[in-house]
Every structure is written in C-alpha cells, then in structure tokens.
C-alpha cells in the first residue's frame, strides 16, 4: 500500500524528491487558507473574547472551537495566524519582485554600458553585500521613522544585489561571444535583444534566485516585526505575533510557538524548493 502511494507522485513529477513535493503541498495549503478563510462566514481574527482567553490548542486541553488555542485577549490563534501569514507572504512576495526588478535592471544596464556605469553599480553591489542588511534597515527606520512605506521599501531593497550580480554576469557572458553579439551585428535594437532574448534566457536562473531571496525576506520581515520595528498593530504579521507571544511563554506558550513553527515551515519549504530547482537547472 505505502509503496504504491509513494510511487504515484514520483511518476507524476519525475526526479522530484519527496521533500520538494511535501514543500509544494505545504505552500499550496498556506495559499488556500489565505484565500479561503476571510470568506468564511462569521470569522474575525480581531474578535476579543475575554471569557475564552489563553485557551490551549487541541491535544493540550483545548477544544476544537479554537483548535490552535486563543491568546491573552481571547482571539482565535488560527484566524490570527492566517491573517499574519497573508501579510508576511504578501510582503515577502512583493519585496522579492521589487528587488528582482531593481537588481535585474541594474545588472543588465551595467553589462550593457560597461565603463563607469558598470563600476558604480558593481561598487554598490559590493557595498550592499558587505554590510549586514538588518543594520542598514534598522538605521533607516531610526532616521526616517517607522512607517509601512519605508518598511516595504526596505524589504524591496533586500537582495537586489544578488539579482544584479547574476544578471550582469549572464548578460556579459552572452554579450561576449553569444547570441547578444550576434543579434547586435544583425542590427537588432538593444531593448529588443534584452527584453525578447536575454530576459527569457536568464529567467529560470532569476527564478531560482528568487526562491533563495524569498525565505530571507521572510526572515528579515519577521525579525524586524519581532523587534517591534516592522509591522505595527493593528496589522499583524508572523513576526510581531511571535514578538507579542513571547511575553506569554510561561502561561500560553502556544501563542509564540504556533507562529514560530509557521515561519520556520515557510522558510524551510521555499528553501527546499529552491535547492531542488537549482539542482534541476544545474543539471540542464
């Protein structure tokens, strides 16, 4: 029985390891919850009920009414978790798209113009890579005050240098002796070469880079929110949920443990998928 069950998906995705399949399943579950739960009738993650405060999850003395327990104000942990997950994943996704866009654009520009443009961009990439980013983001937060726009900007700045470095290297490689040089001699306009030919060819590598960037953005966002410097109440993200739950480690450990495990699973699954994708591309 079990052999048959494990063989079936293996045939559907040839060469995809079980860990990657489970990871994809987990992300699909997360995404479905984010989309479906808000439309369920009569649910509210902000509903306070002091009669049901600090109820433990099912299996630790709790009931199915609040199967992941409730927090200090009697709010349902599961519903709060889904709302936080939505914020965290949306921020991470948006930030990754922004940094991929900035990085790729700068990388291609550097490779195209060479000379001082290239040197400037490479210097910026090196500088960005050598300074711990969390220090930079803390500094920016201190100088410019804590607000959601700055926060998104900070997250979007994260990791651009990785995209820039890659796209620059790959563009340079195809410029030197490859199809970019060929199309240039055939009189193709530059924008067409880059948009129609270079981008599609480096897209898979950029996508893999995004799967490396994504979990790190989640970590950055949750770290800052955990420290109370990112997402502010009434909004909630996985990080600030955990940050608040930290005060109840003795009386209600689940308030911190549930988002903690969720963050861990999200970063882990995306990393596993990224590793797998990198292997596939490396082999091709």
């Amino acid at each position: 029985m079990s052999v048959v069950a494990s063989e079936k998906p293996a045939r559907r995705f040839p060469g995809m390891p079980l860990a990657a399949q489970i990871s994809i399943l987990w992300l699909v579950v997360c995404l479905s919850l984010i989309i479906i739960v808000p439309f369920l009738p009569g649910v509210s993650e902000t509903k306070v009920n002091l009669l049901t405060r600090l109820k433990p999850p099912v299996g630790f003395g709790g009931t199915w009414a609040h199967f992941l327990g409730t927090d200090d104000l009697g709010r349902d942990i599961f519903l709060r978790l889904v709302a936080s997950l939505r914020t965290s994943l949306a921020l991470a996704l948006g930030a990754t798209i922004i940094s991929a866009f900035i990085g790729t654009t700068l990388g291609i520009l550097a490779a195209h113009f060479r000379g001082w443009v290239d040197q400037l961009i490479v210097a910026a990439v090196d500088a960005q890579a050598s300074v711990p980013f969390i220090i930079v983001s803390l500094t920016l937060t201190a100088f410019f005050g804590n607000n959601i726009f700055l926060f998104i900007f900070i997250l979007g700045m994260f990791g651009w240098e990785r995209f820039a470095r890659l796209s620059r290297a790959m563009t340079l490689a195809s410029r030197g002796r490859g199809y970019v040089l060929a199309m240039n001699t055939l009189g193709f306009p530059w924008p067409r070469i880059y948009l129609r030919h270079v981008l599609p060819n480096i897209a898979s590598t950029l996508l893999v880079t995004a799967t490396i960037n994504f979990p790190e953005v989640i970590l950055l966002e949750t770290s800052l929110s955990f420290l109370g410097l990112g997402i502010q109440p009434p909004m909630s993200s996985l990080g600030n949920m955990l940050g608040f739950g930290r005060s109840y480690l003795l009386t209600g450990w689940w308030i911190a443990v549930v988002p903690g495990i969720t963050i861990f699973l999200c970063t882990l699954t995306v990393s596993i998928i990224g590793d797998w994708a990198r292997n596939v591309i490396g082999r091709a």
């Binding site: 770290s223 480690l249 443990v257 903690g260 970063t267």
Partner: peptide, 13 residues
C-alpha cells in the same frame, strides 16, 4: 537547510 530556515528568534525561544 533546516538550520538556515530556522529564524534566530524561533531557535532562541
């Protein structure tokens, strides 16, 4: 991979 995915504050807590 697990160690990389585990956030500092989660491991700490």
């Amino acid at each position: 991979t697990v160690g990389f995915a585990l956030p500092n504050f989660v491991l700490g807590l």
